[in-house]
Nucleic acid binder design. Structure first.
Lengths: 356, 356
DNA sequence: CTGAAAGCGCTTACAG
DNA sequence: CTGAAAGCGCTTACAG
């Protein structure tokens, strides 16, 4: 026999069991009904000052905290938002995620992370999973987001906001930055420092950001006597694409003295390709990127770039979503934030060739 | 008058309302009870093959998906885990987060992200918030995690696992890499290429990783005739700390020909400081980092580093947590993963000084 | 193999 | 200003 007579066997997991107070415990201790506690908690309806005091005391004493799952089920609100982005290990998006999380935490929201790899089916899977969890809203920073998905969310009454572009103009707030203007800033800067033959490495044209930057570049240069379309070269918004695009450009135009890359990663690739060829970036040729990711600062030479206000964009888009969730958003708009030239070594050290 | 007589006013939000099937709808359509549907869904208990067929059909027809919030409340399981890390915009942790999310998604779990900034109170706040949400488990990649918090989670029965170090040996699985051995690898490599006076920039000593790397360094060099404690210099695991540590080192020892930095960010700082002084990294002096973050590859010169298997660590720790949540983890252990020397330009181009 | 019932911990009208 | 009751959509014994 395992136990003495009269000994109560201890359930195996008893050490785990901890008493968590529920709203009923609080009600009992405070001597009021559960509804009153709920009203107090949610500030929905009147509660007598005296009653309030005893409720407060009871909550304190029991160390009570409302169960958010129960609240979610009853009230259809979970204080959770989802951030769907292509890849958190991409430097741009990790900066963005940080901002989103900061703002969300400030307003009492929790952030669920989803990596879509810009694949429509992955994204769809997240939406499916998360709507079953009563997520309060979505932030889409990924490019695959489609009109169809937008419609479904709209029908379900789940708010969402988008980075860079929305599925349509009507039903979503969008935060983006002035990509076209940024591209023009970049070209102007390169011209200012004395560049006379500038190439552009553009990103995937299904991305509106890449397209806008290309348009900005073309509008700035297409009247220049030196401009020819072969100064445009395609990249993939990643380092490797920047490297190979630069190699192709140099073959066609060994005399280019400026490169404007559609984003920082490709600009970093350009730096790499140039230094491999023994071309001195900064003095022989100027390079300018776009985005303003932190890494641009640690490159040698430090990379000139058109900086998007990444943190602000993340903060703004989450504030918009939260407003929308809480019914405080008047109207869906597209917000375009200013970009800023960060002129650094990769262009400032440039010395124009005498004979030009 | 706004509406014609007999016209039913359309509620403002009607276009939002969509019928979502519940388990009751499925039960009704399939002609069985709700419990049977639940049993079918959870594969808990017998269900007749015929019944099964009609249930399947009903689910299909209604496009039914179980409400996870209700399931969470009833079953105390939410299929959600939390990843608490110092800062997602830190390159190391964004790589890690990617791995965690990948594995979690594979097993049907959703990841909630929390940035602690290595501040105990922020971390505590996350734990408080998330336990109310019935989070299934925690991954702590942050250093502030305390024994007290561990005890609370243990009492609550919430599983957790840790990166790098646990609050104690007993109650948590820990994944880390061989930091001491890695440091030795680094030193050996520097000696192999001909360095004869090697400095070490160590990280914050409350971080076990920083400490282990320092110990490894000391064990490797303390018998060497050239070694003196002033070859050790404190850094903060960030770029800026690497810069200033390098400057201080060069003042004291202008003749050092190798630097082993306690992490990659500080090594990047060292590269920066050296190139500012006009010292040629790679040939005049060799630099080796630790971690293997992606950025090391894009530096000029490319940075030699002791790579931790970051992705594998993230994947492993989330698998451990999920196992633990599902009761399939036999025992809490500490797992030490192998590190690997990635020899690149910042050391391979080194030319030993003749006169030494 | 299946169903009725209670319960998870809240919120929300509704009545007083 | 407050309480009783129903309901959110599931799961889990228990009885058959």
């Amino acid at each position: 026999m395992l136990y003495d007579v009269g000994m109560v066997p201890i359930p195996f997991f008893e050490w785990r069991v901890i008493v968590i107070a529920t709203i009923r415990d609080v009600a009992k201790l405070a001597g009021v009904s559960v509804s009153t506690i709920s009203r107090y908690l949610n500030k929905s309806g009147y509660v007598n000052v005296e009653t309030e005091r005893s409720i407060k005391a009871a909550i304190e004493k029991l160390d009570y905290a409302p169960n958010q799952v129960a609240r979610g089920l009853a009230g259809k609100k979970t204080n959770t938002i989802a951030l769907i982005l292509p890849d958190i290990s991409n430097l741009f998006f990790s900066d963005l995620a940080r901002a989103v999380e900061d703002v969300a935490a400030t307003y009492g929201y929790t952030v669920i992370l989803g990596n879509s790899d810009d694949q429509a089916d992955k994204e769809k899977r997240y939406i499916e999973t998360l709507k079953k969890k009563y997520i309060d809203g979505f932030i889409f920073a990924s490019q695959t987001f489609s009109t169809e998905e937008a419609e479904m969310l709209t029908k379900l009454g789940i708010p969402f906001v988008c980075l860079d572009r929305g599925p349509s103009k009507e039903n979503a707030s969008v935060v983006r930055s002035k990509n076209k203007e940024g591209a023009k800033l970049a070209v102007q800067h390169l011209l200012d420092i004395g560049c006379r033959k500038i190439a552009h490495i553009y990103g995937p044209q299904q991305l509106i950001t890449a397209k806008d930057r290309l348009i900005g570049f073309e509008e700035s240069v297409h009247h220049s006597p030196w401009f020819t379309p072969t100064l445009l070269e395609a990249g993939d918004f990643r380092i490797h694409g920047g490297i190979s695009a630069t190699e192709r450009l140099l073959e066609r135009h060994p005399d280019i003295d400026g490169i404007f890359a559609g984003n920082d990663l490709m600009a970093i690739g350009a730096l790499k390709a140039l230094s491999r060829k023994g071309i001195k970036v900064g003095s022989d040729i100027a390079v300018c990127g776009f985005d303003g990711i932190q890494t641009t600062e640690i490159m040698t030479p430090e990379l000139t770039t058109i900086a998007q206000p990444i943190y602000e964009m993340g903060a703004m888009i989450s504030r918009l979503l939260i407003k929308k969730i809480e019914g405080a958003l008047e109207e869906d708009l597209t917000y375009e934030l200013d970009v800023k030239l960060l002129a650094r070594e990769s262009t400032l050290a440039f010395t124009p060739k005498v004979n030009q």
